[in-house]
Simulated assay, not measured.
Amino acid sequence: MAYRFTGFLARGLERVADSSELPADSIVRSIQTPFLGMGIALPSLAGKLLTISELLALANQTGIAAATAWMFIDYETWGRVDAVYAAGLADGSAFGPFDDSNGETVETTYLDAWLASALTMSTHLISNRSTEASGVSSWYASGHPILNLSP
């Protein structure tokens, strides 16, 4: 069974400023690990390649822009990452977009997006990037709380 997550992940944010600005199908959850912050699932945006300016506007509209680091990510997996689109802001610096669906490179691109986001500060992941891509993607995809934002 495929799993898809589309939405924002934000470090250093305790709540969304105005949840009335979110689409009706949104799911908002606090995140405790691997960072402290918020996650907002936005299923209605799945498969839509938002421009950086559209993402910045949505981040401002939802209050995500107040976070110290945030990432919009849309990814799909069938046990390993099959496609990823990600962009955001990491400690004042924009990153992305990362856009990949090539079976040979997508898991590395997925991990590159996570590292660029500064959401996780794991030196283990950074130092073992080439060998960790598959393990990290399956860890996140297998119901890890960060992406399992279902009610």
Rank of each mutant, 00 (worst) to 15 (best):
T6P: 07
F8R: 08
L9A: 12
E14K: 01
V16M: 14
V16Q: 06
S19L: 09
E21K: 13
L22R: 02
P23L: 03
P23Y: 04
A24D: 14
A24Y: 06
Q32C: 03
Q32G: 15
F35W: 12
F35V: 02
G39A: 12
A41H: 09
L45K: 05
L45A: 07
L45I: 05
K48W: 02
T51A: 08
L56G: 01
A57K: 11
N60V: 07
Q61V: 08
A67H: 09
W70S: 01
W70P: 02
I73A: 10
Y75P: 01
E76I: 12
T77I: 07
W78E: 15
R80Y: 13
V81R: 00
D82L: 12
V84Q: 02
A86Q: 03
A90K: 05
S93L: 14
G96L: 05
F98P: 02
D99T: 10
N102R: 07
G103K: 01
G103Y: 04
T105Q: 02
V106S: 03
V106R: 05
Y110E: 02
L111N: 04
D112F: 06
A113K: 07
W114S: 00
W114V: 09
L115F: 10
L115R: 05
A116G: 09
A116L: 11
A118N: 14
A118T: 09
L119V: 03
H124Y: 14
H124S: 07
S127V: 08
N128P: 06
T131W: 08
E132A: 15
A133D: 04
G135S: 08
S137C: 14
S138N: 05
S138G: 00
Y140V: 10
A141N: 10
A141C: 11
P145N: 01
L147D: 12
N148A: 13
P151I: 00
